[in-house]
Design a protein around this nucleic acid. Sequence first.
RNA 1: GCACGGAUGUCAGAGCGGUUAUGAGCGGGAUUGCAGAUCCUGAGACCGGAGUUCGAAUCUCCGUCCGUGCUCCA
Length: 495
Amino acid sequence: MPIRVHDTKRREKVDFTTLEPGKVSMYVCGVTVYDRCHLGHARCYLAFDLIHRWLEASGFDVDYVQNFTDIDDKIITRANELGGDWRTLVDENIEAYYEDMDALNILRADTYPRCTEYVDQMIKIIEDLIEKKHAYIAADGVYFHIESAPEKYGILTGQSIEAVRSGAGGRVAKTGTGKRDHKDFALWKSAKPNEPTWDSPWGPGRPGWHIECTAMSLDHFDKEFDIHGGGHDLRFPHHEAEIFQGECHTGHSPVVHHWLHNGFVNIDGEKMSKSLDNFWTIRDILRHVDAMVLRFALINAHYRSPIDMNEALLKDAERNYNKVLETYVEILKARTDDHPVALPKPDLSSPQPLAKCLGLLERMGEGFGQAMDDDFNSREAVAKILGMVREMSKMLQSEIDQADRNAFAHYATFLLEETAGSVLGILPTREMAMAEPVDDPRKATIADDVEALLVERSTARSEKNWARADEIRDQLTALGVIVTDTADGPKWDLS
RNA sequence: GCACGGAUGUCAGAGCGGUUAUGAGCGGGAUUGCAGAUCCUGAGACCGGAGUUCGAAUCUCCGUCCGUGCUCCA
């Protein structure tokens, strides 16, 4: 079964093919580093992290390139607002990017080019485009001339040149004074006062936004590559501009073989935006939500669907994630030696519970792979994990002999680590999972009082004085303590 | 206006021609003094209309509603 991917250009799922057998070249548009990353960035790079992980798990050697846009209007504006150097701002935000993405267990790309390191390559491409009459020099820079390759218009978004011309209305006048046509886009912007500049055959200036990705991707992958990804909003104009530049420059069509775009994050039903003041940065949200819970919440939907982020969604994710985690700890602890006996053959129709359970797990494992093969359907994959966890937990709680239990736990550990662990990236390391939770310091201050009340309550309970027992529990609740009676006696924690 | 994508039970969210999605919530039951946890189990859905088909949530057409893009944006 081949991997299927939804290609934005073809607007349907297609068989995933690669230029070179066993190898994948993947370029994903990175962040413009003028600020800290927000939830939308998390979703995007998480989506491509799963794609990256699944392709690797499927035996491909993935060469993953993700850029940083480290020069742009917003960076200059922000640096001026803060009164610092733009390079400092950029470095800080790149550092923060790595911290945020690492926290979310997003594996690093192989290469992170910065666009300011590629100005020479951009200039070469622009020169070539001018020579091929696809670009022209104007008073305020160099522009790509759309009408020089009209057949490439609207490839990703299906818009016609005529439609954009009429729809653009009054906005046209404001942009790019030197443009011959409002659809044209800037390849090179002539220097303005107090801006960082680079020398070029057209005088000092800086590159336009779209040219950088073309320069970086082609420098890295040569004429063509397998996957180009990014947020849904980048389809137009950014990625269409890249098609113009890349294909006109290389003479190759297509340069990009699969276009993949991820859906957006909404907050409480509204688009996340600064003007609506519902803008969540990753570090803000990680102050009150566990990173793995956030990761779980974001992969708990297909990468192309929009996600409506809200408290209920996070609560749901937390509950499910904890269930996976608890089961993981349970199976880790059930492993008693490293030389398990052979397990019975998995058999769905077996009357023997262990064989049947193994059959179910095997089927869910296959379902997991099929889900990921089908356009990286992480939501379906998560459903399989929840099913597995349920079966595992049930098996461990059943009457099962010690040797089988050990062998089963080894198998379950392997299965869960292969799927939820290395593919979905939602398992902690074994050490972290097994570590005793660090006690909240607030617990220590009230521990003596709580213990005393619990002793009293135990006495009351042994005397079947339920009224008194419940009264004590109410007192504990008032202290912010939750009591849970278990087979090993009462347990308590902060609520 | 044009383009693209949606509309699935109370909610979240898969499926996209025939098979229980899944999770939360809700209803029963087991266990427990109760609560919680756990396990078993139940109810409940495919925006409206037409068509194709032996069979449609799934394909086609027509509506309605929603989101996004057309300007920097993951």
